[in-house]
Nucleic acid binder design. Sequence first.
RNA 1: UCCUGAGUAGCUCAAUGGCAGAGCAAUCGGCUGUUAACCGAUGGGUUGUAGGUUCGAGUCCUACCUCAGGAGCCA
Length: 477
Amino acid sequence: MCLTGSGCRARIRRAAIFIQLLYYYSTQGKLFVATLIRIADIGQYDGQEVTVQGWLYNRTDKGRLQFLLVRDGTGIAQCVAFQKDLPEAVFSAAQLLTQESSVVITGTVRADQRAPGYPGGFEIGVKDLKLIQVAGEYPIQPKEHGIEFLMDNRHLWVRSLRQWAILRIRATIIRTIRNWLDEHGYLLVDTPILTPAAGENTTTLFEIDYFGEPAYLAQTGQLYNEANIGAFGKVYCFGPTFRAEKSKTRRHLMEFWMVEPEMAFFSLEDLMAMEEEFVSAIVQTVLAQHRQELEILERDTSRLENIKPPFPRITYDEAVERLQKLIEETDDPERKAELAITWGDDFGAPHETAIAEMFDRPVFVYHYPTAAKAFYMQPVEGRPEACRSVDLLAPEGYGEITGGSERIFDADLLKQRIDEIGISPENYAWYLDLRRYGGVPHAGFGLGVERTVAWVCGLPHIRETIPYARMLNRLYP
RNA sequence: UCCUGAGUAGCUCAAUGGCAGAGCAAUCGGCUGUUAACCGAUGGGUUGUAGGUUCGAGUCCUACCUCAGGAGCCA
């Protein structure tokens, strides 16, 4: 009898490892291997012997009956081990499996309505089983955890069911973005991530040491896109974007992914028409390919079904009027203060949410005040205080998912705007060049991938939409 | 950066200023259809940090640290 619990546990652990090693060496090279399948395809193998390799997601130990939920990255399948059907070594190996132990299992697929899993309805009757590694005590349990703990364990959290569903949808959204643009005549032209001093707003840029010179991580590829349309007509760039703003909200990351299409001979109206087709394609593709994942996330898909063109279009002026009317109609002074707005102000989160709630699909708000937007946006004809810009606001409070505009293509006007806001023209010499050698009306926009994923998945926070979120207080893991 | 709130076992949380608790996880035992199984047992604590008030502080006070929610800024 041992006097200390830890010594006792250590002895048991050593014994378990010994048995594991014995079994490993006794079966090495002899594991009965049938057709290696992906669990996602399990339904195609009813009645057949198959092999799956993966990790133990959860287990139910019923004594002489073991239910093993095994993940392989493509899905989750229940594997059932009966003691009476198996050699002693195989069954005791099954008993040794801890949560997240790695394992190779061979058995017969059978349809059974009781079988949980993704896809469910099929299970594997275990015939042989080999432990690869017995996992130590696994920190994440199939229950509620605090967000700090989960983010600290993000490298393991990505194995959890909800994260699996979200990141699979993210991959499909990214794939759809690329496919749709490729199929509609847009050329992928990569823009640099390391960029020189732009002379403007460096407080929100991450500065790095470029052989003794200051350089900055890219905030946008747009200016380069404007050069690239001169070569290719319709282009897009797609990559990570970096903002050093000390934003601490459910909608901000320091590193996020953005796709930025830019088109020559394109008006603001062309832009809206293109964006609504593009965004609808993303949503409809996820609906078509990820019913299972949306169900895991308990997403109300009826809110996604009607994401189809046309999207409503309202001017900034109309949006302000609608907000002011809303303020008149409410009695709550806090709500009034939250929605307070005068012409010229940019929208805050409460404004965007309030406007978006007036529609059942994303809404375009266009012709924002020039002062609230970037210097390169084309003024509205005869009304220079407003510009040819458009934001797309997602429903259900998800806010701005795209922002774009017609760009100034007149060299003199652009030079004037650069002087007005006081940035150094020499940094923009190449950008001005674009207006001297065949400038054309053109337009483009950026779509934030993580905000789109959060919206489509119905998530309250953007941090789960990217595998490893970079936030104000988060650089690990 | 500002406002609000929270830090107690590996995790999720209790505890009137008066003995530090539960569930889950872990470990041991039982169970042939479990769906976050269930039943029994065992081990597990510098109550975020530093001061202070008090006979006595997880609890009250001060400062700091960390995190969360919201705002601003933005995609």
